[in-house]
């Protein structure tokens, strides 16, 4: 099993503290992205992607030409006005790029559709409280069953393509939130299992070297098995028709009876329909002598 990737802030000393790892380096300014990518390569690690965590709307984010070809995850609060973002969007089609926008309003939900329809890969952030599940459901329907080819919109496209009726599907890795695949370091090298836990100061190890120790391993095990608590406690999530593609991700964040259940049930149905639509035609057997 390969080692988890490291998500860490852009700090050359920090990058020098470990070797041979796949790294998703975080910057808060797109102008620093190229340097960050370079320094990761120079540190003896492999670049997974550069995460640009910007406070600016997309219309104000500039990506230099040298970033073309570098995998980028651009997280922005909004698109801004389309008329001002359109030139950038046109250029970004040729970048190895995924844009993350929060579904915190109708404007951003529309922005995600616009990006996807214009060939820019995008990713919807939801489950952050007060979600408009109906609007997210419309967004999902567009992403999975839209009439005309468009760039993928996560997590919907991922779920639709990878849905298996006989298994669970965990798509947390799209958000770098999967303790089996990503470890989050802060500036001091302390290790958390997700961005949220890092921001909350919930560390499982003081440094990467401690990750093989029993406490860290137990924390990972407990985290990856957290979903079983739903069955143990017979929660609403345990019998939700959308369980297989949610695994109770939002059970702690949202009040019971929220729209997430309807949404994920719709997600499952859309995934099933997607599978039917994209199933290869059955091969005609031609007789052979």
């Amino acid at each position: 099993m390969s080692l988890p990737r490291i998500v860490c802030p852009y700090s050359p000393p920090l990058l020098q503290s470990f070797r041979g790892r796949s790294v998703a380096v975080r910057v808060d300014d797109a102008a620093r992205a190229a340097h960050a990518a370079y320094d990761v390569a120079q540190s003896g690690n492999e670049l997974f992607c550069v995460i640009v965590e910007s406070r600016l709307p997309l219309q104000d984010i500039s990506l230099s030409e040298e970033l073309r070809g570098i995998p980028l995850a651009v997280m922005a609060p909004s698109m801004g006005r389309f008329r001002d973002a359109s030139e950038k969007i046109k250029a970004w089609r040729n970048f190895n790029l995924r844009v993350y926008l929060p579904c915190d309003g109708a404007a951003n939900i529309t922005a995600l559709k616009i990006l996807s329809s214009l060939g820019v890969q995008s990713c919807a952030l939801f489950g952050i409280g007060h979600d408009d599940w109906e609007a997210i459901s419309d967004l999902m329907t567009y992403a999975v069953l839209g009439l005309f080819p468009h760039a993928s919109m996560e997590p919907f496209s991922f779920i639709a393509k990878n849905y298996d009726a006989g298994d669970y599907l965990d798509w947390g890795a799209l958000y770098f939130d999967d303790p089996k695949k990503f470890l989050h370091l802060d500036g001091e090298g302390r290790v958390a299992l997700s961005r949220a836990e890092r921001e909350a100061g919930q560390f499982v190890a003081g440094c990467l070297a401690e990750c093989d120790a029993a406490p860290a391993l137990a924390a990972v095990r407990e985290r990856t098995r957290a979903w079983t608590a739903n069955f143990l406690n017979n929660t609403v999530c345990s019998r939700c028709p959308g369980w297989k593609v949610c695994l109770g991700k939002f059970s702690a964040l949202l009040p019971e009876g929220s729209g997430c259940s309807d949404f994920f049930a719709s997600m499952v149905e859309a995934a099933r329909q997607y599978k039917r639509l994209t199933a290869p035609p059955s091969e005609m057997q031609v007789w052979r002598p």
């Binding site: 009726a165 006989g166 298994d167 069955f231 017979n234 345990s238 019998r239 939700c240 028709p241 297989k244």
Partner: peptide
């Protein structure tokens, strides 16, 4: 039924 269907996804 739903509880078991979720617990045992391959049915």
């Amino acid at each position: 039924f739903h509880h078991l269907a979720n617990l045992c996804p391959w049915g």
